[in-house]
Design a protein around this nucleic acid. Sequence first.
DNA 1: TCTGGGGTCCTAGGACCC
DNA 2: TCTGGGGTCCTAGGACCC
Length: 430
Amino acid sequence: MTFLQNDKIFALVDCNSFYCSCERLFRPDLAKRPVGVLSNNDGCFVSRTNELKNLGVKMGAPYFQVKDICDKNKVAVFSANFSLYTNISDRVMNTLFEFTPNLEAYSVDEAFLDLTGFDQKSIIEYAHLIKETVERHTGIPVCVGIGRTKVLAKLANRIAKKNVSSRGVCSLLEQEQLCTALKIVNIEDVWGIGRQSTIKMKMLGIHKAIQLRDFKNDLLIQKQFTKIGRMIQDELREISCFPLNTETPKKKEIMCSRSFGTPVFDIRSMRESVACYASLASEKLRKQKSVCAEIEVYIQTNPFKDIPQYAKAAKAILSSPTSDTRKIIRAAWETLDRIFLNGFEYKKALIKLSRIQEASEHQVSLFGDNDSKEDLEIMRVMDQINAREGHEMVKIAACGTNKEAWYMKQVLKSPRYVTGWSELVKISKL
DNA sequence: TCTGGGGTCCTAGGACCC
DNA sequence: TCTGGGGTCCTAGGACCC
């Protein structure tokens, strides 16, 4: 294994309760109130403000189970509004780019920055400047964690979030602070150590981050936790193993799945939903200028319900790679027909595009159904119109018009403040 | 009544070949 | 009775992340 030698400094900028903060942007009246955002279908909480966390509502808690608590405490609950969050995320990232081009947009609400070269004192000031600038430009509160590796920056960020006295910035560059932090932090709170690994760690007597760092038998760690586990251990030792990835790699798989708003029994509705998900996935595929050669379809009943259960996946290999929505829907339907059984109450369908290649590089099949120039042009025009006039302005008829039959429920959705002309915020004169 | 969605990486083990 | 061995490639499934 090769390691990057360590004068490196990483900062992790992470938005606080990101989805909730986005909702608050347009509802200043919610500043002090507990706020929560639900997953698709208004199922579970996926984002909570501290006020909501303090009420004991856990991440992933099903809404219907905690609805009483929410009502009693006047919690502002929202359906997920992903187009809004993506838009705000872009603004946050653009602001961060002003500080350095060496930036990895790690997820919708966090970014790693390479701040190598700063001295220990000025970097804290700089981190505060970053924090204040993002908040001023976007209205989204963030915390900044600083360390010599990504794992340590992540850990520092966690401390910045938890510890009020840190004022949203925490650096673990100095040995004393680093040691103190590693002694306090539980092993399960180390980035990359999940549920299963935590159980195994504890069996080895490792309960705190520092015990993993100082664990003598490196080979055993490698054996039990794979090469990734070993890298995490080294990162705790300030040996950088996870580099900054500044360019976003193209997706190797593209998935689209939704739970249904109401259960589906018939193949007709199932076909419509699969066609819709296939359309969405194909659109993403074309956006990154790729084609796919494999399509998987998966359907399942509701495992939480006491009813006959069924779940099955099947895949189709295409004779020639494509990004044409029509061909992908056709292949998806054929695959669906192979697994669909009558008599079950279906809750969810999923489609996955894989064996993805560059559109410009893929080999043309001698016998396959290659995309013609006209095919490509039709897709291009369709994407163009939808980009300009709004999502699904033009769509394939297979997707149906009767979405009410199965489409997800989003009763508590906020307006499309930034992505729909009709719902833009109105600013009254002062 | 009501329980999310979208990714990546790693490894073990089977298939296959010589 | 005794039934190669080593390499590569691929896939399914597990674990993790947000």
